[in-house]
Write a protein that binds this DNA or RNA. Structure first.
Ligand SMILES: [Mn+2]
Ligand SMILES: [Mn+2]
Ligand SMILES: [Zn+2]
Ligand SMILES: [Zn+2]
Lengths: 117, 117
DNA sequence: GTTGATATTGACAGTCATTGTCATTAGATC
DNA sequence: GATCTAATGACAATGACTGTCAATATCAAC
């Protein structure tokens, strides 16, 4: 978890494992997978599934929010949208669905990356 | 594409391949993968990446929309949220991001499945 | 301090969706 | 029919993720 705090961007299990190994920590890949899965289940970290299907993790604030992520450098901005949350609830109710959760992520190119080209 | 029209729910490449084989069509798995990837790239079908990372495909209406999907049976409702679209645009602009797209899907349990248990 | 019960670890092998390869086939053009 | 070209499908390879299990750490008695 400390390692995730250090990077501030979304990282996959394998990336985080590499990072820890380069820092000299002797930790196994299995443990990284297990730990991240457990932390995500306990809502201690956020997970999003990238478009290629790989899961990436990040230490985030405790409140419900979504992400605006730079496709190029991974820079992440946490964003909130109360109107969106209400809309999702209403849509689910209108259609009789229960136990509804939603995934909402924004992917784009940040200022730094678009000026760098 | 005709096969996708027949099912009306999101299906993975492998599921669609099975379906075609059971109907007697002699088509290879590679071709199903290739075709679905191409159709998705050409915006002829919608793709979403399930939480386990598997990509599933569906023939949808041409207008921009999102999905309310039953986790149990796959039943899918197309939903629209103009307020959400405006919110996404505003958030992207405020943070200086360009070329922004968004993924927004709702997963829950439909009426039929929740009464069936 | 030693012992033993219990939980955690990590090396390694297995799984499975997806992608790559390539010889074969289908279709068009002459 | 001969020749070229694009599409196909069987099969192998990739890679993220999961399962296994012996080795190790943790810790509470004794
Ligand atoms: Mn977050
Ligand atoms: Mn759709
Ligand atoms: Zn960037
Ligand atoms: Zn259902």
């Amino acid at each position: 978890m400390a390692a995730l705090d250090e990077v501030d961007e979304f990282r996959s299990s394998q990336e985080l494992h590499d990072y820890l190994r380069h820092k000299g920590e002797n930790v196994g890949l299995s443990t990284v997978y297990r730990t991240l899965t457990a932390l995500a289940a306990a809502d201690e970290v956020d997970v999003i599934v990238r478009e290629d299907g790989e899961s990436i993790y990040r230490r985030c604030s405790g409140t419900h929010h979504h992400h605006l992520v730079c496709r190029s450098c991974g820079r992440t901005v946490e964003v909130e949208g109360p109107a969106v949350e209400r809309w999702a609830d209403a849509v689910a109710r209108e259609n009789g669905f229960t136990e509804v959760n939603h995934t909402l992520e924004l992917f784009g190119v940040c200022t730094a990356c678009s000026s760098a080209g």
